[in-house]
Design a protein around this nucleic acid. Structure first.
Lengths: 189, 189
DNA sequence: CATTTTTCATAGCATTTGTTATTGTTTTGA
DNA sequence: TCAAAACAATAACAAATGCTATGAAAAATG
């Protein structure tokens, strides 16, 4: 709970009252390795805060190829914001790569709360600014310009200590290359 | 001005009072072809609404390679949100590809206004949700998974009617390929 | 602990894309 | 209008990456 407060503080200061209302929304959940937090085609409604463990969010192409978009280890927020904002089924699945513990809240209830509490609206704004605007921008260039080796080095920086917890094919899928190519890159480093 | 109201309505309803305060922030500007709206390394402070013309936003690598991140034709908002949010110099330049007319406002003054007007805060939230969360998500997969030809087809859909206004090397730079490769793709289509 | 399954490295070949150069065309600007 | 510059198509070769297969190592499982 102290961890949680610290994490929340990243996005601004919340009043005791707001914090209390927010805390009431939280529900703990557990996921076995391989369990889904969200399946493709499913309507999304929850946001999860990862307390312990690891999720991946990925797309499955019509040919069955898996394309990993992001990893969500401890302290990360996950959920399909695009699906919830458009009220449409999720294009992506979110699944536990390890046994995972979360705290979850209903996104729409959260959004209602932002209308009641201005500090929570500011919190939501700050959350989007940090994770969807500031952090994503470098990737827009990297995928156009950098080769796979450079992107692998970037991955190692972006997710420090995560590499030993992942399979080669998971990292390769995140980088947009084949496991063969990642093996070659590692061999020459 | 009617166009402007219609555009603003995309992001929610603003009260007359808010609209008035907002309109007071707007200043018209003109850019010759090739003129900068924002240079790399410069502190950003304005958002521009493109009334007529076309901007590109791009990164220049240490080797001098130009990587175009986005195009901004009529009715688009442009500006470096990441630079303004982090109060740091812009990594990207924004430059007119055609003679361009804009309406501009100071982002920080706008942000102050969102604290005064709740409907404007909701407007800002909706703007981020649409342009930074919902619209960007498909690209995160496309760059990992699709080949250049598929990305070119996606580009044609994303920016209908823009293709004849752009040079081959500009489109190629947006796609993350060389003009040679784009020429090959076009030849086989 | 033995067996089955998964993972990884590597090889050989195919495909995509990049690099450089050439040529003809189009655009620009004096 | 004319010369210079920019642009586009194309060719030949190089580099990066994908595809398929194979065997060894590691991990999971009974």
């Amino acid at each position: 709970m102290e961890q949680l407060r610290a994490k929340f503080a990243t996005y601004g200061t919340l009043s005791e009252e707001t914090m209390e209302d927010m805390t009431k929304l939280l529900r703990p959940h557990s996921y076995a390795k391989g369990a889904y937090f969200l399946q493709e085609g499913q309507m999304a409604k929850n946001i999860a805060i990862v307390v312990k463990g690891l999720f991946s969010q990925y797309y499955v192409s019509p040919d069955g190829d898996v394309v990993i978009k992001r990893f969500f280890p401890e302290t990360y927020f996950t959920g399909s914001l695009p699906a919830m904002l458009t009220h449409s089924p999720s294009m992506f699945a979110i699944r536990a790569l390890e046994p995972t513990e979360t705290l979850e809240y209903n996104f729409y209830e959260f959004k209602s709360l932002t209308e009641k509490h201005r500090d929570l609206a500011a919190f939501y704004i700050r959350y989007m600014e940090i994770h969807w605007i500031i952090e994503k921008e470098p990737l827009e260039i990297s995928f156009r310009y950098d080769n796979a080796k450079t992107r692998y080095i970037n991955f190692l920086k972006e997710y420090p200590n995560l590499e030993p917890r992942l399979k080669q094919h998971e990292i390769a899928s995140y980088l947009g290359i084949t496991p063969t190519q990642l093996s070659r890159i590692r061999a020459e480093m």
